[in-house]
Design a protein around this nucleic acid. Structure first.
Length: 328
DNA sequence: TTGTGTTTTATTGCCTCC
DNA sequence: GGAGGCAATAAAACACAA
């Protein structure tokens, strides 16, 4: 006999009717109704009405077994029966009932118990355990659904990542292509512009100097550094030797033959330019856009600082997306 | 046959609701 | 405070490989 929280339960098939031991009135009523005294001739007629084909096998747990008051007394003296499983028919009936409604009202419980030849308490316990099993299954289903969704998202993410890399490579490729084209075009433009018109906005030395002081270039490419450009062919005043092959645009031979002309440009333009620079504090502004472009491209590509920053940011941000199974 | 893992039935203790 | 639900757990029943 076990007591808990004011409740009293007999063994699986043992019922003790002592009122002082039954604290749950409903259980007491159920016990009374389930007892052989009140329900000794219980049949499965109602069950047959509902499911049609019911085994005529006697239910192990029913009280249809021949019992007498003496046997009840024996149950008090002898250890209780071991628990027995419900028959397939009982389980089937309970399952159908559960499908209709997974909660059990007292009337329904008593009716089911009657129909199945069980104690109401057994029916209640079966429903309780059945709800627990259903909940577990439901959790498993939910888990599978979430896992499946996660896998789908992961696949999507991976393909997007690949696409991103592909696009990035394409950008790099096209950028390089654009570069070389622009450089060639530039060279041609300069050839025709400076050679034909004999116009140059400022001396190359000034040009380089402005780059050094400029705000848009963090590091002048090593091969195009101020020192490199001035190391040979410059006099103490920083004026380039007219015979020296100085290439602002590194590696472009098309400009080689005009350099001497370019670096001999009138210094008067420079003084004016300096004034402008002082006024606006913008060294780049005084440089021909093409020079800016060429010096930048050597190391950073053809992007102004802002563009480079945003470009890098754009890709860096995506690379930081954490990914990992949430259930690990 | 037996050891072991799984399923089913039942109990216990706690909690919420009325 | 009683009734009933639920989570955790015990224990019997069952399945199955070795």
């Amino acid at each position: 006999m076990m007591m808990s929280g004011g409740r009293m339960y007999g063994g699986p098939n043992v019922l003790v009717m002592g009122n002082e031991n039954i604290s749950r009135s409903a259980d007491a009523l159920e016990a009374l109704l389930s007892s052989p005294v009140f329900n000794g001739s219980r049949s499965v007629a109602n069950l047959e009405e509902v499911i049609g084909n019911v085994s005529k096998r006697p239910f192990y747990n029913s009280f249809d077994q021949e019992e007498t008051g003496d046997e009840d007394l024996d149950d008090c003296i002898h250890p209780p029966e071991k628990k027995r499983r419900l028959t397939a028919d009982q389980v089937q009936f309970l399952e159908r009932s559960f499908e209709i409604e997974n909660k059990l009202e007292p009337e329904r419980k008593i009716q089911l118990a009657k129909d199945l030849g069980l104690q109401p308490r057994q029916v209640a316990v079966w429903f309780q355990n059945r709800r627990a099993r259903w909940k577990t299954k439901q959790l498993e289903r939910d888990y599978d659904i979430l896992k499946s969704r996660y896998e789908n998202l992961r696949v999507d993410y991976d393909s997007l990542l690949k696409e991103k890399d592909k696009l990035r490579a394409e950008v790099t490729f096209l950028t390089g292509k654009l570069h070389s084209k622009d450089c060639d075009l530039e060279a041609q433009t300069k050839d025709s512009e400076y050679v034909d018109k004999k116009v140059f906005p400022q001396p190359a030395s000034q040009c380089v100097e402005k780059f050094e002081r400029g705000t848009s270039i963090k590091d002048t490419p090593p091969s195009c550094k101020h020192e490199d450009l001035l190391s040979s062919g410059t006099d103490s005043s920083g004026v380039l030797d007219e015979d020296s092959p100085h290439h602002v645009d590194c590696g472009h031979s098309s400009l080689d033959h005009v350099n001497s002309h370019l670096f001999e440009a009138d210094q008067s333009d420079l003084s004016h330019a300096d004034e402008e620079e002082e006024e606006e504090g913008m060294s780049e502004k005084l440089l021909p856009q093409t020079y800016t472009y060429h010096l930048l491209k050597v190391e950073d590509g053809p992007y102004p600082d802002a563009s480079i920053a945003s470009y890098n940011e754009m890709f860096a941000m995506e690379d930081q997306v954490p990914l990992g199974p949430w259930w690990d």
